[in-house]
Each structure stands twice: as structure tokens, then as C-alpha cells.
Design a protein around this nucleic acid. Structure first.
Lengths: 151, 151
DNA sequence: TATTGTTATACTCTATAACTATA
DNA sequence: TATAGTTATAGAGTATAACAATA
């Protein structure tokens, strides 16, 4: 069935385009995709230790150090002492970080709207269901894709 | 409309999963995503100069040098002199490279089939159309996303 | 003079390993 | 002894700039 390949290739193409679009829109603010992931996670979870980010972003603690360093230099986050554990540091959003996340949330809604503008309710619903199915299949294909470490 | 955000987030999730799945399946063969892109392009176009790859992959010539170095070390490609232009080198697939691409094409078909297995002809067709629309919108969103430099 | 590919340099993301301070 | 975060080191992908050989 040729449509299967067409669908697969379109998904790959969309994946590339989404990545590219994200990189582009971030570049101006001195952010990168990796740093923004951490920032977004922080926005969602509230102040957390670096260890928490390492676990949820599934990267090494060392990597988190670098990302937080960069975000701190950019003024997006601040390191604060953990109230009870003097080994740990709490990463918190600065005002700039908070504003940046608010703008990003706006951009996300706008992009979400633009991508499917003009879709009928039925088409949108069926599209969503198809995507859900594909995402589920992908989770099956990938052995240790347990992203549910606290969500 | 909440469905718009659900669709958008699912697309982002699928993009991440596709990338992860690809990295995983390549890791064993000593390939990476970037190198495989070049290999795939070579497989599609036939022997080409490095400059051609730089243009079509939209990366710097220097980057291509590094990728071809790695692929050459891995035995996937060979550098051959250009028949008429002594400045240029022709990158060609070795037997290993050819076999690898054949296997990858197989894997692509299998994955394409698995992701949408059980979809009815109508559902698949509508899914494809929705994806086409989204891909088109993304191309509009991204200023210089002209990937059609020869396709 | 323009082009092809290279060396030189640098930045980002990523990893593992060793180490410090704390628990 | 185990954990949180760091320094040290390394590799991959990416970029620009300077340079050699050739067109």
C-alpha cells in the first residue's frame, strides 16, 4: 500500500520541519531546543533540583549542569539553595524566564491553530485519533520509552 | 478548540519518537542520523560531489567533509576522483553502503506498515491528506524551507 | 576571479568517570 | 555508603574563516 509510505515520509518531513521551525523561532532569544526543553519542564513542574531535570529529560546530570549554566547566563533561570538539602540546588524561573514561557505558550497556541486551520470538527477529531494511534505504536517500537516518570 | 493543541502536541511527540527510534536502530551499525541522511541522499542521487550534499542537506561544506570522513572510516562510502574536475571528489557507495541502504529501505517499509496497521483505506487516505495539509502549512511558516533544490 | 574541499577554531549537546560536599 | 552537582575529558554535529588546488 503506497499510502503507508506516503504517510510515513510525511511524518518524517513534519518532524524535521517542526524541529527547524522551533530552532528558528528560538534563535533570536539566545535559546536552543535543548535549553527550551528544560525551561518548559521547569515552567510545568515549578522549581526543581537538577537531578529531577536529568531524570525527566532523560539526559545526564552533567548535561543539565551545562544547560542550566547557559540558561542562567541568559537570565532565564536562577539557582537557589535547596531549603533542606544543602547538596542540591533549586532551579527557578526568573521574571524573564516566566515571560519567555508565557510568550512561548502563546506561540504554541497560535501554531497549533494555524497548522489545522480550516479543519472541520470531524476531520480534526479523526486526525487526532490517527495521531494518537501512531504515537502509541511508536511507543511500542521503542523499548525504553517510559516518559511517565512522574507525569 | 482543545483538539488543536492535542494535535500539535501529538505531532511534537511523534517527531521526538521518530528521531529516537531512528537513532536507536542506527546506533548498532555505527551510523548516526546525520550520516545516514547523507548516505540516504547518496543512495537516491547516485555518486555526487560533496558540494552537492552540502547544498541538498543544507549544511556547510565543512560539515560534509566530517560526515564523509566518518562514513568512509566506517566503510559505507568511498571518495573517488571526479572524472573532469580535479578539485572535486565523487562520493560513492561501497558494497556495504549499498547493502545498508537496502536494509534501511526494508526497515522503512516495515515501519510505515506497522505505524498505520489496521487503518481502513478511508482513514489512511484522510490521514494522509491531513498530514499533507500540515506539512504545507509548516513550509509556509518556515521562511527559507526550499527543499526542492533538484527533487 | 570563482569554486572545491580542506585545515583551524569554536560552540552546543551529549556521555562517562572522578571528585567534593553533603546526607 | 549513597546522592547532588561539579570538573575533566571526549565525541558528534554544526558554523565561519582562511587557505590550497584547480577551474
Amino acid at each position: 500500500m503506497g499510502n503507508e509510505l506516503l504517510v510515513y515520509d510525511r511524518l518524517l518531513e513534519i518532524a524535521l520541519l517542526l524541529q527547524e521551525d522551533m530552532s528558528r523561532s528560538l534563535a533570536s532569544s539566545g535559546l536552543t531546543v535543548a535549553r527550551t526543553h528544560l525551561l518548559w519542564e521547569l515552567h510545568q513542574r515549578g522549581p526543581s533540583t537538577q537531578r529531577v531535570f536529568a531524570q525527566h529529560l532523560k539526559v545526564s546530570p552533567r548535561n543539565v549542569t551545562g544547560l542550566v549554566d547557559a540558561l542562567e547566563s541568559g537570565g532565564f533561570v536562577a539557582r537557589r539553595p535547596h531549603p533542606t538539602d544543602r547538596r542540591a540546588t533549586l532551579v527557578t524561573l526568573t521574571d524573564l524566564g516566566t515571560q519567555t514561557m508565557a510568550a512561548m505558550e502563546q506561540a504554541r497556541r497560535l501554531a497549533a491553530h494555524q497548522l489545522v486551520a480550516g479543519f472541520g470538527a470531524d476531520q480534526l477529531e479523526q486526525f487526532r485519533r490517527s495521531l494518537d494511534t501512531v504515537a502509541g505504536r511508536l511507543h511500542q517500537l521503542i523499548p525504553s520509552a517510559d516518559d511517565n516518570t512522574g507525569e
